[in-house]
Design a protein around this nucleic acid. Structure first.
Lengths: 339, 339
DNA sequence: TTGAAAGCGCTAACAC
DNA sequence: GTGTTAGCGCTTTCAA
C-alpha cells in the first residue's frame, strides 16, 4: 500500500490540509518549520501523491493523449520521441492511441480518450477526406473533450490548439520540379493513401510542376499505395510498365520498396530510373545509392508541438486556435540523374 | 462538462448507486427495466465514466506503463505496436516513459510511474550491468509499485510477472558460426553498449563460436558502439583497420551505418567484407545487398507480452514470476560470402 | 430491487 | 499558521 497524505499527517501531528499545502509548489502560509518536517517525513516514506485523486479534484491529469496511425514509420517515431522528450521533462506522460483509418472508430476512440482525464490531445494522424457529416461528428467529439488539441493537419477543429502543418504541396512541387530540371518528362508518381489530405496536397504539387513545364498530366502515371515499404515494392512493376524515366514517391518508405523491387527486376537507380522520396528518414542516406528526398524538420516540429502543448496546458487564459506551417527542402543525393 | 452518473440518476429518477450497478458489467440485482432505462439515458448523453474516479476507488486504472530506451529503432517500435494492439482491444492504453541509461534516473522514473495508478508495467528497456546496490534499489522501487511487471531481460525482479528473454548468446553464436563456416577467421565485432547485458550475451556467443573453431579471441577486434546507425558508421574505419574479412554487427542499425561507411570508403560488401546484422528490421531486406541477419520473432514476442500482461491484470490469483524464452534464427541474405 | 451513506486520496474554502 | 470540512465521481456495503 502506498503511503498517503493521511499517514504523513498522523506522523507529523498535523492535519492533512497542512500536509497538502506543505507539499504543494504554490506559495502557501505554512510555516517553514512545519513544511520542512512534512517534506522530511514524505521523503522518508517515499511518498508519491495518488494521481487518480489529484486528477479527480483538479479535473486535469499529467497525461497527454496522442493519436497516430503507425509508429513503425521512422518519421513518426522520431516525432514521437521529440514530443515525449519535451513533455516528460515537465512531468507529463504520453498516453498512446493507435488508430486505423476509419472515421467511425475515431469517435469511439475519442470517447475512450475523453474518459482518460487527459490535459491535452495531440492528434498526429493523417487527415482523411471526410464527408461533412463525419467532420462534424469528429469535431463534436473533440469539442466534448474540452482540452487543447494539437493537430498535424488542417482539421478545422473548433477548439483551442494549433494546427501544425507542413507544406506538402510545395514538397510535391519541388520534388517533381527537380526531376523536370533533370530533363525528365515522363514522371511516375507513387502516391500514398488516396483519401489522405496530405496525399492530395503532394499530388497537387506534382501537377503544378508538370503544368508549369508544359507537360500534360496523365493519371495513368499516378498509382496509389499506402505509404508502406511493401506498397512501394508492389507498385514498381506497374509504374515501370508505363515507361517512366523517373518516379516521385510520396514517402521514403515506399521509395525503399521501389529500391527493393528495382533490385529484384535488375533495374538500376538512377541509371534506368530516377527516384525522389519524401520525409528524409535516416535510412535514406544509407542505401548504396542514397535517396534524394524532401526533408521535413521533424526535430523542430516535434519540439514545437511539445512546447506548445505544455504552454496550452499551463497557461490559464484561452489562446484560441492558430496555424503553424513548416516548409520542405530538397535534399539532393544519388537517386536522381540528368537525362 | 462531462455528464456524470449523478446526471443520469436524476434524469432516470433513481439513485446513483442504481446507475452505477446498472452500468456495471458484473451481474447485479437491478431490474431489467431500470437497467434498460439507465443504459438508454447514458447512451443518449454519451456518458463516459470518469477514469480518475474509477481508479481512485478501484485502485487500478486502465493504464499500462511501458518503459524503453529509444523508439526510433524499428525493432522497438514494432514491438510497441504489437503490444499496443493487444491491450488496446481490451480497453487499456499504454503510458510511455522513455529513459536514458542511468540507474539513478530509473528509480526517479519509477516513483513517477508508481504515482500513475497503472495496472501493470512493461519494462522494455535493456538491462545494464548494475552494481548490487543499484539492483536492490531498482527492485525495491519495482516492488513498491505493487503491480505485475513484464521485462525483456532477466532483471531478477521479485514481483509477479514474466521475464521475456531472447537467447542472444545463441544469436551471437549463430552469426559468428555462419561467418566461420564461410571461411572467415578474422572476424570483427561491432558491439553495442558495453554495459548492456544483451551486449555481453551476444559477445559470449561470438567468443563461443571462435573458440569452437579454434580461433583465438582478440579483444582488439571488438569495438563498442551504442546500437545506433551512426555508431556503426563511425566504427567502420577502425574495424577495417584491423584487417578483418568479416564483421558481426550486434544490431541491424549499426550494420546500416557500416554499409554507409563502406560506401564512403569504397569498400564493397560482401566482396571485401562480409557483414552479419542482428534483429531483422524491415530495411535489412531493402539494401542493394540485403543484410544477412539474425531474426527475432518480434510479432510473436509483442503479442505474448500484451496477452500475458492482460492475463496478469485480469486474473485475481497471483501467478508468481516465470520466464519465457525465444530463439534466434539465421536469415541468410546477400551480405556474406565464402572465402 | 433500490437507496443512503461511507469512503477512495486529495485540494481548497472557510473557520479558528 | 493550522485545522475542519466539503466535495471531486464513482463503487460498494448495509438498510430498507
Amino acid at each position: 500500500m502506498q503511503v498517503t497524505i493521511k499517514d504523513i499527517a498522523r506522523e507529523c501531528g498535523v492535519s492533512v490540509a497542512t500536509v497538502s499545502m506543505a507539499l504543494s509548489s504554490k506559495k502557501t502560509r505554512v510555516s517553514e518549520k512545519t513544511k520542512a518536517k512534512v517534506i522530511e517525513v514524505a521523503r522518508k516514506y517515499n511518498y508519491q501523491p495518488n494521481n487518480a485523486a489529484v486528477s479527480l479534484v483538479n479535473k486535469k491529469s499529467k497525461l497527454i493523449g496522442i493519436v497516430f496511425n503507425d509508429l513503425r514509420n521512422t518519421h513518426i517515431s522520431s516525432l514521437f520521441m521529440e514530443i515525449n522528450n519535451v513533455v516528460e521533462k515537465r512531468g507529463y506522460s504520453l498516453v498512446c492511441h493507435i488508430i486505423e483509418d476509419d472515421g467511425a472508430v475515431e469517435c469511439d476512440l475519442l470517447r475512450n480518450v475523453g474518459a482518460g482525464n487527459i490535459s491535452a490531445l495531440i492528434w498526429a494522424k493523417s487527415l482523411e477526406k471526410y464527408t461533412n457529416e463525419e467532420k462534424k461528428k469528429l469535431n463534436d467529439a473533440i469539442l466534448q473533450l474540452d482540452v487543447p488539441v494539437m493537430t498535424m493537419d488542417n482539421y478545422g477543429f473548433a477548439c483551442e490548439g494549433t494546427d501544425v502543418v507542413f507544406d506538402y504541396r510545395q514538397g510535391g512541387y519541388i520534388a517533381t520540379k527537380h526531376l523536370i530540371d533533370y530533363g525528365h518528362r515522363r514522371i511516375g508518381c507513387v502516391a500514398g493513401k488516396k483519401n489522405y489530405q496530405v496525399t492530395q496536397e503532394r499530388l497537387e504539387g506534382y501537377k503544378m510542376a508538370l503544368q508549369e513545364a508544359g507537360i500534360s498530366y496523365d493519371e495513368k502515371l499516378v498509382v496509389y499505395g499506402d505509404y508502406t515499404m511493401n506498397s512501394g515494392y508492389m507498385l514498381f512493376s506497374y509504374i515501370m510498365g508505363k515507361k517512366v524515366t523517373a518516379i516521385f514517391s510520396m514517402n521514403d518508405e515506399m521509395a525503399f520498396g521501389i529500391y527493393r523491387a528495382a533490385r529484384m527486376y535488375g533495374v538500376s537507380i538512377p541509371e534506368e530510373v530516377s527516384v525522389v522520396g519524401f520525409d528524409n528518414v535516416p535510412f535514406a542516406d544509407v542505401m548504396q545509392v542514397p535517396l534524394t528526398t524532401i526533408g521535413i524538420p521533424v526535430e523542430e516540429i516535434g519540439k514545437y508541438i511539445g512546447e506548445r502543448t505544455m504552454e496550452l496546458i499551463e497557461c490559464t487564459e484561452k489562446k484560441g486556435r492558430n496555424v503553424r506551417e513548416y516548409k520542405p527542402q530538397l535534399l539532393l543525393r544519388g537517386s536522381t540523374r540528368k537525362i
